[in-house]
Design a protein around this nucleic acid. Structure first.
Length: 287
DNA sequence: ACCTGACCTCGTCT
DNA sequence: AAGACGAGGTCAG
């Protein structure tokens, strides 16, 4: 039996450039050689060739260092295209985000491109978040649920959210009144947690999957956005039937079921590699 | 139940 | 330089 690789020693294979530039996170910027990122009320700071020390609990958690990536990637490599994508971006990883920030980020993402999403989130932080100085630089932390729940829709709109402003306010209220509780959602199975999320105004199948995958421990979540549909159509026309029409909730679920059957329990990881590969191919902007 | 159009705004392209 | 276009979807009719 092969000795398991120590998680702390294998993690420096993580490539922060690739991981941050993969559409999972929006509030990161590179200054000189360091990445600075907002995650809830924290500012994460990382160097390119960062090695994780035991006391970096928060960073270890964020970058999912304790996932057994050897095992996961071995399983993913059963699929040829995912295998190629892993070969191209071996240091790409999923991250584990602050749930509230992730929730709002993807509500705000609907029908938008990444530069717009980033701009809106930055504006929300500036208007509703508190300031923190790190390395002599000023950062604005992500607002708390109460900050956005108590804000006026008009003020939220000033951040460039358009019709999404109402959704951000009501979704934040759902946190305050307990209709959405992230710790409970983490404990539920994928399907049950997803049903709860979709009850929230502004959250559909795709956004729910992003929240589940990037912040609520559901690695079988596989966000089916226009890119992923294009990818499935392009490389997997033998495996999946993709119609050109927009998916209804039911057809979405059906396709997701087939996708998990094909890619396995770590389908979410597969999605991240495929998404990264295809968007790089078209030179799409990340941040 | 499924299908279609409308939707705010902004970065990018011409 | 101004105008059109489309973007990691969702909701209502």
């Amino acid at each position: 039996m092969k000795q398991p690789v120590s998680n702390l020693s294998s993690n420096f294979k993580i490539n922060f450039d690739h991981t941050i530039n993969s559409g999972q996170v929006f509030l990161w910027e590179k200054i000189d050689t360091k990445w600075y990122g907002i995650d809830g009320r924290r500012v994460l700071v990382l160097e390119n060739s960062q090695k994780f020390k035991k006391n970096m609990k928060y960073e270890i958690d964020f970058f999912r260092i304790n996932d057994n990536f050897e095992k996961i990637s071995n399983e993913l490599k059963n699929d040829n295209y995912v295998r190629d994508a892993i070969k191209m971006f071996p240091g790409l990883r999923l991250v584990r985000q602050n749930p509230f920030q992730c929730y709002i980020s993807f509500i705000v993402s609907s029908n938008s491109n990444i530069p717009s999403i980033k701009s809106r989130l930055q504006n929300l932080c500036k208007m509703f978040g508190s300031k923190k100085i790190v390395d002599g630089k000023a950062f604005f932390l992500f607002p708390e649920p109460s900050d956005l729940a108590n804000a006026s829709i008009l003020d939220i709109k000033k951040c460039g959210l358009g019709y999404r402003a109402k959704a951000v306010k009501t979704a934040s209220l759902s946190i305050l009144n307990g209709k959405i509780d992230f710790d409970s959602l983490k404990k539920m199975d994928y399907q049950t947690a997803k049903k709860e999320l979709i009850k929230v105004f502004g959250i559909g199948s795709k956004v729910a999957d992003c929240i589940l995958l990037f912040s609520l421990e559901k690695l079988e979540a596989f966000p089916l956005d226009r890119w992923m549909l294009r990818i499935l159509q392009k490389y997997y026309s033998n495996e999946f039937q993709i119609s050109t029409k927009t998916l209804t909730e039911k057809t979405y679920d059906q396709l997701h079921e087939n996708v998990v059957e094909h890619f396995g329990a770590y389908a979410g990881y597969a999605q991240q590699f495929l998404f990264k590969m295809e968007r790089e191919l078209y030179k799409k902007k990340w941040l």
